[in-house]
């Protein structure tokens, strides 16, 4: 009988809806005009449709960002849902753009959409990858920097998912500490 198995036709729903953003550093335009939503998605199939048809992060021009955030949260610390939070930051060296960047970004996205942070998944806002000549950066943004245990567990799960060796330390920066300061002077709230 040619009755279709529903499993093969129904898209697999995600716990959350997500928006993928693109930022291109066009100095001739206002910063906010350079930041746009590519699309939103709330199923596994739509995620793959999007991911398979967008340029890999490693091939973006310098100065560009990709961000994937829960629908309703803008990829900026000023957003009410980001303000009290912070980000786990992974700094890549120049050679890691070709060796690690795309894998790190995909593994991070799979953790996001699959709710891979267990009971702490509600504390996740989104993730951003910044393509920069001086070294690319990947950030996982959380909702509340004061939730220390939850934030540390999120950091450990991120390292585990990206196969970051335990001896490599990553740092968590609270947005309230970084707002308006040059990147290098910022002190990590904690590390794992």
């Amino acid at each position: 009988d040619d009755v279709l198995d529903p499993e093969s036709v129904i898209k697999h729903p995600l716990q959350n809806s997500w928006a993928m953003w693109f930022f291109k550093n066009d100095k001739g335009r206002d910063w906010k005009d350079n930041l746009r939503v590519i699309t939103t998605f709330d199923t596994v199939e739509d995620f793959w449709g999007l991911y398979n048809h967008t340029l890999p992060a490693s091939r973006l021009q310098s100065g560009c960002d990709y961000s994937v955030f829960k629908a309703g949260i803008q990829p900026m610390w000023e957003d009410a849902q980001n303000k009290k939070g912070g980000r786990w930051l992974i700094n890549l060296n120049k050679s890691q753009r070709q060796t690690h960047l795309d894998d790190f970004w995909l593994e991070t996205l799979l953790c996001l959409i699959g709710e891979g942070f267990d009971e702490h998944s509600d504390d996740i806002c989104g993730a951003t990858v910044n393509i920069r000549t001086k070294g690319d950066k990947l950030g996982l943004w959380t909702r509340d920097a004061n939730k220390i245990e939850a934030t540390k567990k999120i950091g450990l799960k991120l390292k585990e998912s990206l196969n970051v060796p335990s001896k490599i330390v990553i740092g968590f920066q609270a947005h309230s500490d970084t707002a308006g300061k040059a990147g290098s002077t910022v002190k990590n709230r904690f590390t794992v």
Binding site: L14, Q15, E45, E107, L110, G114, G116, S121
Partner: peptide, 18 residues
């Protein structure tokens, strides 16, 4: 309530489904 969770292997498996 219940949470819809997909582990990495399930998501990769669904990457290639039609």
């Amino acid at each position: 309530g219940t949470r819809i969770v997909y582990d990495r292997s399930r998501l990769m498996q669904l990457r290639n489904s039609p």
